[in-house]
Design a protein around this nucleic acid. Structure first.
Lengths: 257, 257
DNA sequence: CCCGGAACAGAGGTCAGACCAGAAGAAGTA
DNA sequence: TACTTCTTCTGGTCTGACCTCTGTTCCGGG
């Protein structure tokens, strides 16, 4: 069986729609932000029923490629690339993702991103980062404002990394983590320290010191993780709350078996 | 209003279906591989039209949470976690992802994964890895067989890392890269060297030497990347082909129409 | 008794057209 | 001029009929 599992000849119409729109995007006819024709008209054009067209559009919308606005129209997504919003959360429910795992993924990706940003970042990125750091210091007493600039800071680093795929990955994870972060920030009492760390990261990036940026980012995120109590549970933790998980230890903490 | 902030009031029914199935999964009523009721019956149960139900199911299917088999039924996905298959490819078309970027993402993720596998891998993983290495050596003269074991080897490392999220990320990228890899392997003349590298990686993981595993994996992937001519273009390269800026071609491998 | 093809039933896929609901802009009114 | 209402465009939902694919059952010929 050389072929991939399933070349699905079924769902013809749906894939027909998907491929059609895909080609429109590839040849530049459709660009981010553009509006596609009304369903009734588009369906007539493609010679398929409106229902089938909607199935295809729904598929694209689910993956974040298109954005549907009731009463207005359907558009090609234009924000930062990101996989389906509910995607991670759904898969989490299905495969039992844990918070610490999301955070671990984030730390790995984002610290590398910081290093890449230090290597490849341009002046515009440096300026934007400086701007956000300043805003952070300015909103130290306003947690929700602070969080916004925090998010922007990290997003700019993603862009500065020059790798939109990694940026999309991070974006996906971050958006799934957003709710929790907000709660944490609300009760956070020392945003100054956090702002300082961001500033240091910014400086490392601006000075083009990848290793340093990477290290600082990692340190920053680990601290954030700790603040939210999302560390990887130790063997002891799990034993305490899990009775007997057969053969499921693999501890790191070094607690005696 | 126990729900999340930005609940889109539109797409009511769709989200209703999604959330319903989601809760069925979360409370264990539905597990990977399970079949959901026939559309007509399920629609009656939820008191919505079959069309709306299908929209919701389509949404879940697009994200890889459900798998639909024409003439048979609809099931909860059971394979390795992965985001929507066409997802990356579609987003690539939209945001102009480049092959070297996918590879860069893969290198970063997978080398860390190797390190984690070295830290957390269990006996069963070690055994499975050894098995695949052996198979690789056995199929040195059969490229397509070799590729299968190569894929399995990397997938086992993903599992051994103990972080299903990172595994899902890798799986997504890898599947998008699959077509290209197949072509490359077909004309590859020296699979022995590749097999040797896999063996070394395996040894490092088994010996629980994270740093070494990470380094070897990175080295291995960079070599693979070079073999496929997917390095990051240099400034000179870009200048050479940058004449027609708008013409966007040569994106990631997608499903042939 | 075994085998292969026909028929069947169950499940998803598509279609048609009518009607519901949100949003934006035009038209009317104070 | 500024506010309100109405029209119209766009997506959302419903209904119920019919098509296609798949797996299973059944039956006749070898």
């Amino acid at each position: 069986m050389a072929r991939t599992k399933q070349d699905e000849p079924n769902t013809h119409r749906t894939m027909h729609v998907v491929n059609h729109i895909r080609s429109l995007i590839e040849n530049g006819t459709l660009q981010p932000g553009d509006k596609i024709p009304p369903e009734r008209e588009f369906a007539r054009t493609l010679k398929i029923s409106r229902a089938s067209l909607r199935t295809g559009i729904g598929y694209l919308a689910a993956m974040g490629v298109m954005k549907i606005r009731h009463g207005v129209g359907t558009f090609v997504a234009d924000g930062p690339p990101e996989f389906g919003k509910a995607s991670l959360s759904l898969m989490g429910a299905l495969h039992g993702f844990q918070s610490w795992q999301m955070f671990e993924a984030r730390i790995i990706l984002e610290s590398h991103l910081a290093a890449l940003a230090a290597e490849r970042g341009k002046e515009e990125h440096h300026a934007a980062l400086a701007e956000e750091v300043a805003e952070m210091f300015a909103s130290i007493n306003n947690p929700s404002d602070y969080l916004i600039h925090d998010l922007l800071f990290h997003r700019i680093i993603s862009q500065a990394s020059g790798n939109p795929i990694l940026a999309a990955l991070i974006e996906t994870i971050t958006s799934a983590l957003y709710d929790k972060r907000r709660k944490t920030v609300e009760r956070s009492t020392d945003l100054r320290e956090s702002a300082e760390m961001h500033r240091e990261i910014y400086r490392a990036i601006r000075a083009r010191r990848p290793m340093e940026a990477r290290k600082l980012m990692e340190q920053h995120l680990r601290m954030a993780q700790a603040a939210q109590g999302m560390e990887r549970p130790t063997a002891a933790d799990r034993k305490a709350q899990n009775g007997a998980a057969k053969g499921k230890q693999a501890r790191l903490a070094g607690v005696a078996s």
